[in-house]
Simulated assay, not measured.
Amino acid sequence: MAELDKEAVIGVLNKILESELAGVVRYTHYSLLIYGYNRIPIVSWLRGQADESLLHAQRAGELVTHLGGHPSLAIGPLLETHKHNIGDILHESLEHERNALAEYKHLLELTKDRSVMLEEYARELISLEELHAGDVDKMLRKPGDIAVFSTP
């Protein structure tokens, strides 16, 4: 196996940690702004996403310390458009999922054939983020549409 660039990997893991912490704040914020007949299931879904983002952040932080690094205390970018209808929230969520997916793919590039543990971690999270992006994409479709809403 090729040698792992620990500093680069720690840097990406810290970006993931920051992004996932931003997801906790973002999804919690969104859950507070849902109104209307479909409020309860949408709030439940958003809060589930916040909970999952926290678990992802904790996992990334644990890997940072596993590699001898220091976990970032920063939080990733938080977008506040002041557009609070469900469609806008879902568009912003899709953008957030795509950004997270890009970081996990970057981690995979750095760890492939260098660390089985980190490579498997990156693959697992890529799979989860792709599923999340797919769920949001489906929610953005009009009822009856089967074509993908947006291109990945």
Rank of each mutant, 00 (worst) to 15 (best):
V64A: 07
T65N: 01
T65C: 03
H66T: 10
L67K: 15
L67G: 12
G68S: 14
G68T: 12
G68D: 10
G68F: 10
H70A: 10
P71I: 04
P71M: 07
S72G: 07
L73T: 13
L73M: 15
A74E: 12
A74V: 01
A74T: 00
I75A: 11
G76L: 08
G76D: 02
G76N: 04
P77I: 00
P77V: 01
L78N: 00
L79W: 09
L79H: 13
E80G: 03
E80P: 05
E80S: 13
T81L: 15
T81Y: 07
T81G: 14
T81P: 09
H82C: 02
K83V: 11
H84Q: 13
I86A: 09
I86P: 14
I86S: 13
D88C: 10
I89S: 08
I89K: 02
I89E: 00
L90T: 06
H91A: 10
H91V: 13
E92D: 15
E92G: 03
E92A: 07
L94D: 05
L94Q: 06
E95M: 08
E95D: 11
E97R: 03
R98T: 06
R98D: 00
L101W: 04
E103P: 00
E103A: 01
E103R: 05
Y104A: 06
Y104F: 09
K105W: 04
K105F: 03
H106M: 06
L108D: 11
L108N: 08
L108H: 12
L108F: 07
E109T: 13
L110Y: 06
L110N: 14
L110C: 14
K112A: 15
D113P: 13
D113S: 12
D113H: 01
R114I: 01
S115H: 05
V116C: 08
V116M: 11
M117R: 09
L118M: 06
L118W: 04
L118N: 05
E119K: 04
E119H: 02
E120M: 15
Y121N: 07
Y121A: 06
A122L: 06
A122C: 10
R123A: 08
E124Y: 14
E124S: 11
E124K: 11
E124F: 09
E124I: 05
L125G: 05
L125Y: 15
L125K: 15
I126G: 08
I126R: 02
S127N: 14
S127L: 12
L128D: 14
E129T: 01
E129I: 00
E130G: 01
E130N: 09
L131K: 12
L131I: 10
H132G: 03
G134I: 05
D135Y: 08
D135L: 12
D135V: 11
V136H: 00
V136D: 03
V136M: 02
D137P: 02
D137E: 12
D137I: 01
D137W: 00
M139E: 07
M139V: 02
M139P: 03
M139D: 05
L140Q: 01
L140I: 03
R141K: 10
R141A: 12
P143Q: 05
P143R: 02
G144W: 05
G144C: 13
